[in-house]
Computed example of a mutant assay.
Amino acid sequence: MGFNYGIGISSMVCLAALGMGSCAAIEEEPMPDVNATPTKLELEVPDGFPSPVYMEDNPLTEQGVLLGKTLFFDKSISADGRVSCASCHNPALAFSDGLALGAQGVSGKALERHSPALFNLAWMGNGLFWDGGSKNLESQALGPLTHADEMGMDLAELEYVLSLNPSYTEMFDAAFEDGTTAVNVAKALAQFQRTLVSADSKYDRWMGEASGVRFTDSELKGFALVKKHCASCHSGELFTDNKFHNNGIDEDFSDTSHEMIRLGRYRISHAEADMGAFKTPSLRNSMVTAPYMHDGRFGTMDEVLDHYANQVANTAYTSRLVFQNGEKAGIPLSQEDISAIKDFLHTLTDQDFIGKDYWTDSN
């Protein structure tokens, strides 16, 4: 699969007990007390970020987050034992996979959608997936778990497999009153993903007036250009409005594919204004999460910016936000502008986030 996370899913769980090999090299820690109340975990909100979206029926706990992390990197929760969540969401790529349309799933078939990066998900309250087809992280988790071309797992079988594992049984009992259930798998995965916070880039340190952090002239120019031309969608400290827009990448919206992905948000809302509209990704970490768009059609940031400068399709559904060249679709950008924007986007790369070791680091 390219990323063998199954060999080190958690310093807290003996891998021999999980059926994935020896745990001799893993530093063991005491298992959680199953009789104790789960320990509440407060999510630290970075400066300038809005309030997170809280799920009252799935509050963050230390035990739930640890369980979710363990499950995220465990290939045994797929139908053939070869695919984990991390197979398509590599931490070193801000939890993306570097592929246009991945084929790492149990069927070996290419997916119809590009695997999105995963970070700052605690602030996504307007639907998940490129078209917002899932309302929250809990329901979203069940999609790849059961999809025939992703993890392909029957939920009853998943519960059975996990219930046979004493280490998992202890962890589920410590995290949830009702123990090992498919619903709690989704809840635990959601809890872990809500802790994936990226807010320590050069940009963040510069905004916080950290000692010795300076922007170059080109970075400053790029920041000004992003605020002028891009902030209508890539807004705030999250650098996304978490909304859906048709950005003029298609002219034809007829779609006979299985998932009708080209229809965008319209597939869910059936509102004509949502035809071909897709969720705005964050600009954070964007220089390490290529390729781009819902189908990964643009391999580089240069291609993305060239699209906005020269290739925006003028359709009845194209967002008026990209009509920035008089009455013409598109954004006026010179090659010097494009270079400056890329320089600024590099300042949004959170090196600590993409460099974190999830086998040994605590949450």
Rank of each mutant, 00 (worst) to 15 (best):
M1N: 11
A16N: 13
L18H: 01
I26S: 02
E27V: 15
E29K: 14
N35V: 11
T37G: 01
T37D: 15
E42P: 03
F49C: 11
M55H: 15
T61A: 08
V65H: 04
G68T: 06
F73R: 08
F73Y: 11
D74A: 08
S78N: 03
A79N: 11
A79T: 11
H89W: 10
F95W: 08
L101V: 12
G105Y: 08
V106R: 02
K109V: 02
A110F: 15
F119Q: 09
G125E: 03
G127Q: 00
D131N: 12
G132R: 00
G133V: 04
G133P: 02
L137V: 09
E138Y: 06
E138S: 02
E138F: 02
Q140L: 05
L142D: 08
P144M: 01
T146I: 12
T146E: 06
T146D: 06
A148Y: 14
E150C: 01
G152K: 07
A156I: 15
S163P: 02
L164S: 13
N165G: 04
Y168F: 15
F176C: 05
D178M: 08
A182D: 03
V183E: 09
N184C: 06
L189D: 00
Q191K: 11
F192W: 10
F192S: 01
R194C: 06
D200V: 11
Y203C: 00
G212V: 06
G212L: 09
V213C: 07
T216D: 06
T216P: 02
L220S: 13
L225R: 08
V226T: 10
H229V: 07
C230N: 03
C233S: 08
S235R: 09
S235P: 00
L238N: 05
K243F: 09
K243Y: 04
F244I: 03
D250S: 05
F253I: 10
D255Y: 10
T256Y: 08
S257M: 01
S257D: 01
I261G: 02
G264A: 07
S269D: 13
S269V: 15
E272T: 01
A273T: 11
F278G: 02
L283T: 10
T289A: 05
A290Y: 09
D295G: 05
G296C: 08
F298S: 04
T300F: 07
D302P: 05
L305E: 01
L305N: 03
L305T: 04
N310A: 14
N310R: 15
N314C: 12
S319L: 06
L321V: 15
E327K: 12
G330I: 12
D337A: 09
D337M: 13
A340Y: 03
A340V: 14
A340I: 07
F344L: 05
F344C: 03
H346F: 15
D350T: 14
D352W: 10
